[in-house]
Structures are given as C-alpha cells and as structure tokens.
Design a protein around this nucleic acid. Sequence first.
DNA 1: CGTACTATTGAGCGCTCTCAAAACCAGTGG
DNA 2: CCACTGGTTTTGAGAGCGCTCAATAGTACG
Lengths: 255, 255
Amino acid sequence: MASDKIISISNIKVACGDCSLKSLCLPLGLNREEMHRLDQIIKRPRPLQREQFLYRAGDTFRSIYVVRSGSIKTYTTTKSGEQQITGFHLPGEIVGLDGVSVDIYSCNAQALEMTSICQVPFNRLEELASSLPGLQHQLHRLMSKELLADHEVLLQLGKMSAEERLAAFLVNLSNRSAQRGYSPHEFNISMTRTDIGNYLGLAVETISRQFTHFQEVGLLEAARKHIRIIDLPKLRSLAGGEAPCESNSNPKVQA
Amino acid sequence: MASDKIISISNIKVACGDCSLKSLCLPLGLNREEMHRLDQIIKRPRPLQREQFLYRAGDTFRSIYVVRSGSIKTYTTTKSGEQQITGFHLPGEIVGLDGVSVDIYSCNAQALEMTSICQVPFNRLEELASSLPGLQHQLHRLMSKELLADHEVLLQLGKMSAEERLAAFLVNLSNRSAQRGYSPHEFNISMTRTDIGNYLGLAVETISRQFTHFQEVGLLEAARKHIRIIDLPKLRSLAGGEAPCESNSNPKVQA
DNA sequence: CGTACTATTGAGCGCTCTCAAAACCAGTGG
DNA sequence: CCACTGGTTTTGAGAGCGCTCAATAGTACG
C-alpha cells in the first residue's frame, strides 16, 4: 500500500516535469492539459540563500510557495521578541498558507539552507481552481492537512515529555523522508538543535541530552546533522504510539 | 476601523436571516441571490445535548458546521488514551475543517452545552464556491484563520508560562465575546477548568491556582463559569503583549 | 439531603530550565 | 599546516515551575 503510493508519486512527478508540485497536482488526477494550465501560472524565482527570507510577517500576501529543494522554517514572534517556529517545510511541501486569511503573511519564512522554490500566485490559483474542481478540492485538502499537522504538534507540546516530543519529531522527519522516496532510517536534517528545541518548546540543552540519551540506548546515531535511526519501531512507540497522519502517509482508510 | 467592521457585521447578520453564517457569508459581499443559494444547501439538524458528539474521529467527512448557539470542543486522542483539546468553538465559528484533508474527521467534536448548529455539506459548498469566487476565497480565509489560531496556541504552549497562557486564553475569549457583540469584560465560559488545563497543556490545579492568583491581584473576578475582567489592558500585557490575530479583529493592516 | 462532579488548596517531588564551561566543527588567514 | 574565531553542540550542577497526590469545599441535581 505504502510502496504503491510511492510508485505513483514518482510517476506523476515525471509527468509533472521537473517540478515538486506533487503536493498540488498529485492526488488529483489532472490530465496533461490541466496540468499545463497549472504550470502556466507558476514562477520559479531564483533560489534562496541560507538565512534568506522568503517573506516576512506583515508582508502583503500574494503567493504560496512549493519547496523544490532545500528547506524553510516558518516562525512567529512575540512582542517581547521571542520566536516560535511553527513549521519546517521540506521539498514538495507548501509554504505561505498562513497569509490567506488577512492578505498578510503572519509568519516569517526563512531558508535553512540553499533552497529553491516554485511561486504560485494565489489569485491565479483560485481562478484556476474555480474551473478545475479537482484542483480546488486538493487545495482544500492541503490546507486541512496543515491543520492536522498543527494539531499533532499541539498534542506534543501539550501532553508529551521531552523524550516523547523528540521521538515524535524524528519519526515525523523519518516519514517525510520516506515520502520523498528516501530512506526512513537515514537522513540529514537542516535545522540546528536550537531550532528543534524552539519548535518543540524545549531548551537546546534538553534536545542535546535527549539525543545522547537515544544514542546511549542504541535507538539511533546522530552525528551533527546526520541522523541514522537504528530502531524505528521503538522510536515510534516512544513517540506516543504513532502519529495519526501528520503530513504523510494515509491512516486507516475507513471508520 | 474596528467599530466600522462591527457595524457591517450586524448589518449582514440581519440580511443573512437568523443564521450564524456570518463566518461564511460575512466579509464577502454576497448579494441577496447568492446568499439565498448558500442558504439553500444548509441544513439545520436538531440541537446537540451537552456531551453529545457532533462527530467522532474516524467518521466519514461530509460536512462542516457553523455553531449557532452553545459551544463545541474538538480534541484528538493519543494511543495511550490521553486527549488533547485542539479548540473551543463559539457561536459563529466553524467546526469540521479538520476532516477535509483525508475525508475523515481527525478530531472528536463534542458539545459543551446545549448547542445548535448549521450543517454545510462540503461538496455542495465546493460546487457553489466554484461559481462564487467570493465564497471560495472566504472559505480559504477561514481555513487560514484556523491555522493562525493554531499558531497562536503553539506559541503559548511552546514559550509561555502558566500565568501567560491563562491570560492569553482569557484575552482570546474576551476578544471573541466582543466580536459577537457582547462585552469583552464579562462573559460566561462553558468549559471546565479541566478542559482549560488540557487545552493549555497545564494541570487543573495550575489553572485553579492561576485563577485565584489573578483574583488576588485584582485582575478579574471568576465565579465558576462567570468571568468578569477588571483590568483588561493589564491582562493583555500579561498575555504577551497582545495576540496577533487569533480568530478575531484585524491586526495592523499594512507592512 | 445525599450523590457525583467540579473547583480549590496544600505539600513534596521531578522534569526541564538556567547558568556556566568545555568540546567540537568549519571556515579563515597567517 | 596550524592557530584563530565564531558558531553549534555537549555536559554538568543547581534552582524553579508546574505536576502529582491527597484532602477539603463548593455546586448541581435527583
């Protein structure tokens, strides 16, 4: 089932040209002509350098973006200057939906490394969606999926211990790695421990300690940005029995 | 500006019949005929009793709902049986958008008190949205607004102390009370302290202690479910300098 | 007027934070 | 090649916030 999905992903990816628009055009059976129309409205700005902003909180909202390669973090800031990372966005994923509600981006979006993106003007996308019901529905699914991902993190921040949070975070990254066709056991992360701590509501030191703890019990190896998960099942169980559906594979299909 | 908005709200509410569909048809200048078409697809199921479920996690997704009166909480559960409340939904607000992404509701939605709702079949809504660009856009705004609200809570759970979280929570409720045309200083809450604690990632006892603390310093009076805020500005400043845009008034308008 | 539930209050403990210092790494320039 | 520098990561020790456990008080309801 899962592998089946993977295969169809790469098929469509090919059909879809180079692009990482699978998030948008993937599960919605657009035909070639429709895909072409979608492709028409997409721009490909020059890649972002590390630390460069894709947009800042307060900027006028015009487009959403699809990450093609690299990664982007989004974060809000409090009056007191503290920042809270709201998400990490990997290739194939969407950035910018936070801007829709008031035509102003509410987050800052900053590249964690050299990152290339597709730009999708939102008003054009809405126009197109009016005539392509499948596209419209897919757009809605994407937004809803963001909600689910946020609820997932809400659960982590609200109920989980430091150990469980980091486990859940790593499982999530593992799932997303697999979803992009890479190994779920070995991948590189682009964010610093500080970023992880910020995202998970924990101090850097706590993250670091948990990493060493996981290594001591033989769960994984973490050399800087390189992560190798040795006992994924155990990590999953630590993560609270498995995440419902984050931004990855489909859960139980019927009720 | 804000008051201006308020006025237009009540106008349209009148135009919109009894219904609490302001969330949907409000800021999007539908004319009478369009409003009528929207009204056509809406059902009004019998009210929910206290504790009754609107839907459960795993149910097939078909509709979103607008709260007309009463209130609803949505929550997810972990494998281990713990639950995390993801939101409280008051009159005029939307419930059920979490179901869009995989055609299955991911949360449980349960009435906190006697609650009446409007049911909006989602596929019908999408059809209608295809021909009414304003409606489509408004739908997108609503979903995005949920994202912002979640990010707000993320920030609270990730960075704020117990005192700040409860303050932020009360300020949020105050804003929403005002938005519905009631006093921002005095309102009734339908959720228990346990619910509040669960939502804010704190123990019941902590909530209770913070309430008494707020009363000791003369910030507010809390008699069970009845809240009277005495020093709203101070409460706001405690809440981290003011929330960007939760599910209420518009923030700074330009960058 | 019990019964069940919710809320409050107290005491002690533990997880995570804070502060501080050392180790490590990558890049730079002598 | 090596010292230097700035950044990130790791490790240690102590303190505090919020949790847990437990008991009391208040409220709604039959």
